[in-house]
Computed example of a mutant assay.
Amino acid sequence: MSGLLGTKVITQIGILVNDIDKVSQAYADFFGVEKPQAIITDTYDKAQTQFNGEPSEARAKLAFFNMGSLQLELIEPDEHPSTWRNYLNEHGEGPHHIAFVIEGMKEKISLLESRGFPLQQKGEYTGGRYAYMDTIPELKVLVELLENDK
């Protein structure tokens, strides 16, 4: 039996926060590691962010902790409509997604949509692209697809 993604290796867990500096420091202290520098996602002209099929100006501050085999991503969204902002408003701080590195983004999105997991948000980043698929009804968390340029 082959899975829908072609992998079962979780590469990242994403957590939504209201104050990235405060929560980054808390994780750094908890694990005894250096606090990462937060970055801000690209503007629309580069990121080409789409949320529920519409262009979105949404941006977020991100901080990454490399935790051995997986990465912990903290996300502090801006006020614009996005999967991050909506989820934070509806559910408060906490886990948002689990991410997998895949190949063939368009095909994977089509396959998942055909199985009843609609695309919620997608965009570009330096070196690749991402897509959040709405797997919450069945998996209780979003699945993020990450495709890195070769």
Rank of each mutant, 00 (worst) to 15 (best):
E57Y: 00
V101P: 06
L62C: 13
I10D: 13
P77K: 05
G123Y: 05
E147R: 15
G94L: 01
I39G: 05
Q37M: 10
T126Q: 08
L16P: 10
T43H: 03
G53C: 02
L72T: 10
T41F: 09
G116S: 03
P77N: 08
D29G: 08
G94Y: 04
Q37G: 04
L70G: 02
I39L: 07
Q121Y: 01
V143W: 11
N148G: 06
I98A: 14
E138S: 08
P36H: 02
E93A: 10
E54S: 09
D45P: 09
D134K: 07
V143T: 15
L146G: 05
M1H: 08
Q121S: 15
A60H: 11
L70R: 06
R85A: 13
Q12E: 15
N148W: 03
E124W: 04
Y87W: 14
L5Y: 00
A99Y: 02
L72E: 09
M105Q: 03
D78K: 01
Y130P: 10
G32F: 01
L111T: 11
Q37K: 13
K8V: 06
V23R: 01
S24N: 03
E57M: 09
T43E: 09
G94S: 04
Y27D: 07
I75W: 02
P55C: 00
K46P: 10
Y125N: 11
L146N: 12
N18P: 05
T49H: 01
Y130E: 12
F65W: 10
A131F: 02
G6P: 09
S110T: 10
E73Q: 13
V33M: 15
S2M: 11
M67W: 00
K22H: 10
H97E: 11
A99R: 06
K35H: 00
Q48C: 03
A58D: 07
S69L: 14
I40D: 05
G92Q: 10
N52I: 07
I136M: 12
Q48A: 03
S56D: 12
D45K: 11
A60P: 10
K106L: 07
G6S: 02
G53M: 11
Q121E: 15
A47W: 01
F65P: 15
G127S: 07
M105H: 00
Y27R: 04
I102G: 10
T83L: 14
K35G: 01
L145H: 02
T41I: 12
E124N: 08
L142Y: 15
P118Q: 03
D42T: 01
L146Y: 01
K8D: 13
G53H: 05
H96A: 08
Q71T: 15
T11P: 07
L4C: 05
S24Q: 13
E113Q: 12
K108V: 03
L142Q: 08
A28Y: 00
K46T: 08
G53N: 07
